[in-house]
């Protein structure tokens, strides 16, 4: 059974902008998918249609459950199975790392306990294990704002892992990081995909990173799906087709050094 299936998926924002047009796509369980495209091509929208953060029409199913038209409760259940990682990390800067990671457990703990921060020991243990998996458990009681950018993104990954997700969505996870840290974070994501078998979908705009870490590549242009294939079949011409222009040093993480 396929994990994530898009059928005629269209996203139109309240302002009238259609960011995703009639996408048909199947992502199998355990795949490591990289999405590329210019900014504004609909990469973020595609990711957010999976967990219903954008107004989506058509059909998106996650593990057989329909996102379109789901009730609040149903959409929360789908979201609890889908971890998300953000370009700007989206941590509560003033809170400690452990509390940020525990936000991944919100859908699993009783509401009144989460309101007062009385986390069950079991959930704390999972949060700690998630931190260990990304190698920064020693920072568990440090304020998130005291960490470097790379460390903050690993906290973001740990938060997603704490959900014990079946899918991880990463929206430009390295765009705010320097080249060396970018590789570290990409390698973390690759390892998690390999070790835990979590379906991983990553938006990237660095083509060399996409080529180095991706297995399957999806290209978006102006909200349309323009490429879908194995990364081994991808050459510069394909990128040129997706981008609609020549490749520049800005498109490579190495180019930014």
């Amino acid at each position: 059974m396929s994990r994530i299936q898009f059928t005629g998926t269209t996203v139109t924002y309240p302002g009238g902008l259609t960011a995703l047009k009639d996408v048909d796509l199947v992502i199998e369980e355990g795949e490591f998918v990289v999405i590329v495209g210019l900014s504004g091509a609909g990469k973020s929208t595609l990711l957010r249609s999976i967990n219903g953060l954008v107004p989506v029409t058509g059909s998106v199913t996650v593990d057989g459950r329909e996102v379109v038209g789901a009730s609040n409760r149903e959409i929360r259940e789908i979201r609890s199975d889908v971890g998300m990682i953000f370009q700007t990390f989206n941590l509560v800067n003033r809170a400690r790392v452990i509390n940020n990671v525990l936000m991944g457990r919100l859908s699993m703990v009783p509401r009144w306990r989460s309101m007062f921060g009385l986390w069950p020991a079991h959930d704390k243990e999972i949060a700690m294990q998630s931190l260990e998996r990304v190698g920064i458990v020693e920072k568990a009681y440090v304020r998130a704002s005291d960490l470097s950018g790379g460390q903050q993104q690993r906290v973001g990954i740990a938060r997603a892992l704490a959900q014990e997700p079946k899918v991880i969505l990463a929206d430009e996870p390295v765009a705010s990081l320097d080249p060396v840290t970018s590789h570290v974070v990409m390698r973390d994501l690759q390892r998690i995909n390999r070790d835990l078998g979590i379906t991983t979908i990553i938006n990237l705009h660095f083509l060399d990173l996409a080529r180095q870490y991706g297995q399957r590549l999806i290209g978006l242009k102006d909200g349309l799906l323009v490429f879908d294939g194995n990364i081994k079949d991808v050459d510069d011409d394909v990128f040129r087709g997706i981008y609609g222009r020549a490749i520049t040093p800005d498109d490579l993480v190495e180019g930014r050094r």
């Binding site: 509390n99 919100l106 509401r111």
Partner: peptide, 18 residues
């Protein structure tokens, strides 16, 4: 962080509180 909490399946109350 609000979006992150929502993406993790939190209820509205939890989003505000956490």
């Amino acid at each position: 962080p609000l979006e992150a909490a929502r993406a993790a399946g939190a209820t509205h109350g939890q989003v505000i509180a956490r």
